[in-house]
């Protein structure tokens, strides 16, 4: 995806994000993915990790929020193009003078931003139901990590959405992709527990660097150097993802416009 397009059409992206948010608040499955499931995982983790002490509560809050973020990205952003096709609006969107990837960027922006609710709901749950005193160690760095994570997740989503529609075989694995990322990204336990051969896989996952930055800034377990490194990795992967996404969108639109296979892309 070209950044120039995003700068030119930023108002369109924001309008798409607003409409997507309004639309999705009526979808009970989305409410489940961003609100109910992360809260249940938070309750489970708070019960399971309670012997480790109250300082792990913030770790659980951030980790369970990240599960909501990933599930939302996988199931909602991943299906963002497919849903347009099912509703019969894909043809109109492809024919618009606005670049198609800007529209999908706006949809992903809405998905990722609304997923942050899962972190807030887990925070409220841990504070009210479990009575933990939650302290954010580096609030400013945490906010910075959230902003960069949003960008990294949106960029990752821009790769997933066209992949799922171009290569249906990949989408069939969608259900099986949810928990492995919870595990490999270290959302709720350190990846040091996993076999060594899995570590390189974790390193190429943007959610892993997001988890590191958010955990380290919220619990104070990492120094500034480590946090900046995680930010750099997220930005690096975002650039790579945007480059891959631009190629995928080009390929998808070529098939749609030249081969006239939009409904069967």
């Amino acid at each position: 995806m070209k950044l120039k397009n995003l700068i030119t059409y930023w108002r369109t992206a924001l309008t798409v994000a607003e409409i997507t948010l309004r639309h999705q608040w009526n979808d009970s499955f989305i409410l489940f993915a961003i609100l109910v499931q992360p809260m249940i995982i938070a309750i489970l983790a708070l019960f399971m990790l309670r012997d480790l002490g109250g300082e792990y509560a913030m770790f659980v809050v951030v980790g369970s929020g990240l599960t909501g973020l990933w599930s939302s990205l996988l199931f909602i952003s991943g299906n963002s193009i497919n849903n347009e096709r099912r509703q019969g609006t894909l043809e109109s969107l492809v024919a618009l003078p606005t670049p198609f990837e800007v529209i999908i960027f706006g949809k992903n922006l809405a998905n990722v931003v609304q997923s942050l609710i899962s972190m807030s709901s887990s925070y409220i749950l841990a504070a009210l139901l479990f009575g933990y005193t939650l302290k954010m160690v580096s609030p400013l760095l945490f906010v910075g990590s959230v902003i960069i994570s949003i960008f990294a997740f949106i960029s990752f989503g821009l790769v997933i959405a066209p992949l799922f529609i171009i290569y249906r075989g990949i989408q069939q694995w969608q259900n099986a992709m949810e928990f492995p990322v919870y595990i490999l990204a270290g959302f709720l336990f350190p990846i040091a527990m996993l076999p060594n051969w899995t570590t390189p896989i974790s390193y190429v996952l943007p959610p892993y660097w997001a988890a590191r930055a958010l955990h380290e800034t919220s619990t104070g377990t990492g120094d500034t150097e480590k946090i900046f490194f995680a930010w750099s990795m997220m930005l690096l992967f975002s650039v790579i993802d945007l480059f891959i996404a631009s190629k995928l969108f080009k390929f998808m639109l070529y098939k749609a416009r030249v081969d006239a296979t939009l409904e069967t892309v």
Binding site: L49, Q172, I183, M193
Partner: peptide, 29 residues
């Protein structure tokens, strides 16, 4: 469904879920 979807939904997803909670429990205990 294709066999691949069945494997993804009925074998790999539950297996991944089991591994996740087992590691989480192992970390806790």
């Amino acid at each position: 469904f294709r066999p691949v979807t069945y494997i993804a939904s009925k074998i790999l997803m539950p297996l991944a879920q089991m591994i996740f909670f087992t590691f989480l429990g192992s970390y806790a205990s």
